[in-house]
């Protein structure tokens, strides 16, 4: 079983989507120190999976794997947006609040018998607009991203409370309620639908980051804002774009959560920003911006997802789960800072 794991691991997306600068070291395929450093999170993930599979028999069942992916999809989709933001050396604390408010909006629209496509489109647009608000404050108001999104986080949570009156909004009645429930609970070819959404999000993000001008500018902006500005690039527009992307993806996550629960909870998404940031950082993206990969984020969300799953399988109490999660994140970041100091 161990050998099988390793082989399937070598085909994992963490290796296929590597950007151009590291390919040279891969093509030689020598397992040296650099290689280990470059892929430390993938390696950690593999070791971790092997370890869990040895302790728990049910870990490697198809059912459990799909379960992990479905549970991970929400954090994964948010973390993709967070990757864009962090690559520009920003941060987005408002993702959880955007999730909640857009979820409430979706449930309300469903209750008003709106068409499902219209609900999805309006919700995603509303999320992007909420993200754009953060982006506007950061770009035009020159406010630090941490403070700006702390404000929008609080503001939008408050707006959610006002909008819902602090009570859940049901999404189980209405003309499109069945179609709506498919988003979070449906299956396509025996695979939960949220997994498709997650896969699509990653593919799209990979394309944008590696093959479009916006992607290049995101890296450039995070690497050196002054140089990017001086290269004739509208830096403000890039900032607006990444926060809008983050907001739109938070709304997508909000659709999944709301659909799955068949209701919008006013407290939904609370502290989700922390899991997303943790996943991005675990994936090796630098908080100072300009360095990191979307494939790393995938590895990061999987590490967190599998950790949660494993601790559940092993019947660890939820109190200890928090501590275990914290230790893993801390360890990963410590290794990362040490490696970046060495280089």
């Amino acid at each position: 079983m161990t050998e099988k794991t390793l082989r399937s691991g070598a085909l994992s997306p963490g290796l296929t989507g590597s950007p151009e600068h590291v390919k040279s070291s891969v093509s030689k395929f020598r397992i040296n120190k650099d290689f280990l450093f470059e892929y430390k999170s993938v390696i950690a993930l593999l070791i971790f999976m092997v370890a869990v599979s040895m302790i728990s028999d049910s870990f490697f069942s198809t059912n459990n794997m799909l379960n992990i992916l479905r549970q991970t999809s929400i954090n994964a989709i948010i973390a993709v947006g967070m990757t864009f933001v962090i690559l520009t050396s920003g941060i987005d604390l408002a993702v959880g609040s955007i999730l909640a408010l857009s979820g409430a909006l979706a449930a309300t629209l469903i209750g008003m018998d709106f068409n499902i496509m219209l609900v999805v489109t309006l919700t995603l647009a509303a999320g992007a607009a909420m993200g754009a608000m953060s982006g506007l404050i950061i770009a035009k108001g020159r406010v630090q991203a941490f403070i700006a999104t702390l404000a929008t986080m609080t503001l939008l949570r408050g707006a959610t409370m006002v909008f819902t009156d602090g009570r859940p909004i049901s999404a189980s009645s209405g003309a499109a309620s069945d179609a709506f429930s498919f988003i979070g609970s449906g299956y396509l070819f025996a695979i939960p639908f949220p997994i498709y959404l997650m896969a699509f999000t990653f593919l799209a993000a990979w394309f944008v980051l590696n093959h479009t001008r916006l992607g290049r500018y995101v890296y450039a902006l995070g690497g050196n804002e002054a140089a990017t500005r001086l290269s004739g690039i509208n830096v403000d527009r890039i900032k607006l774009a990444v926060y809008s992307i983050s907001g739109g993806l938070s709304a997508l996550a909000g659709l999944i959560v709301t659909s799955r629960l068949a209701s919008a909870q006013p407290t939904a998404g609370n502290s989700y920003e922390l899991d997303a940031i943790a996943a991005v950082v675990l994936g090796g993206t630098s908080l100072t911006g300009g360095k990191g990969r979307i494939t790393g984020t995938l590895v990061g969300v999987l590490i967190i997802g599998i950790l949660n799953n494993a601790l559940n399988l092993l019947n660890v109490s939820s109190y200890y789960q928090l501590i275990a999660k914290a230790l893993v994140i801390l360890l990963a970041v410590l290794v990362d800072t040490r490696s970046s100091r060495q280089s």
């Binding site: 890296y219 450039a220 690497g223 050196n224 002054a226 140089a227 300009g290």
Partner: peptide, 13 residues
């Protein structure tokens, strides 16, 4: 280094 180049990007980028 200050505002000419993005050091973390490649020569071509």
């Amino acid at each position: 280094k200050g505002d000419g180049l993005v050091l973390e990007l490649s020569v071509s980028e």
